[in-house]
């Protein structure tokens, strides 16, 4: 009986911890940080193919580009009022000052990625040719809108 209560209590604790983690994960700062990590991972997968470190794999190319495309469309919505600071955010205050330009930059990334998705690069050379223009969007936005900590 005692053991049972202990087990139940432990489960409750675990559940609470899990819920806290979910709540944490839903903070806009955490959500957008995860989105950028996903884009980084996708760029890494594409670059590995471009450099010949990994063999060409159409599925990897498609999934990676799709991830970047999806992020580009929802990323600018992750900066509600009140999320300007905290949680180690590297977001520049300029995001809230020049929101239209910030959104336009995300839209440009989406446009570039979707064009690449529509004519999926068919081999290593095509992947290498495609990631240059896509990658320019990263620095182009981070130049103004990210503050490195």
């Amino acid at each position: 009986m005692k053991l049972k209560i202990f087990a139940a209590a432990s489960l409750l604790c675990l559940g609470a911890a899990g819920a806290a983690e979910v709540a944490m994960a839903q903070e806009p700062q955490a959500v957008r940080q995860q989105m950028m990590k996903d884009v980084g991972r996708s760029m890494g997968a594409l670059a590995a193919i471009a450099k010949g470190e990994k063999p060409y794999d159409a599925e990897v190319v498609r999934v990676s580009l799709t991830t970047i495309s999806q992020v580009s469309k929802t990323f600018p919505d992750q900066f509600p009022a009140g999320s300007e600071t905290g949680a180690e955010t590297e977001a520049s205050p300029k995001i809230w000052e020049n929101t239209d330009d910030f959104r336009a930059k995300a839209a440009q990334l989406g446009k570039d990625v979707d064009a690449t998705l529509a004519a999926l690069p068919g081999d290593q050379a095509a992947v290498a040719a495609a990631i240059g223009p896509i990658g320019k969007n990263c620095g182009g936005c981070h130049e103004t809108y990210r503050l490195k900590k």
């Binding site: 980084g40 760029m43 670059a47 990658g135 990263c138 620095g139 130049e143 490195k148």
Partner: peptide, 19 residues
Amino acid sequence: ETGFTPDYDSVGGAMVAVQ
């Protein structure tokens, strides 16, 4: 050369022009 760190974070801030 490319503006990407080993884990594919990108160059930012004033370093963009430098890179």
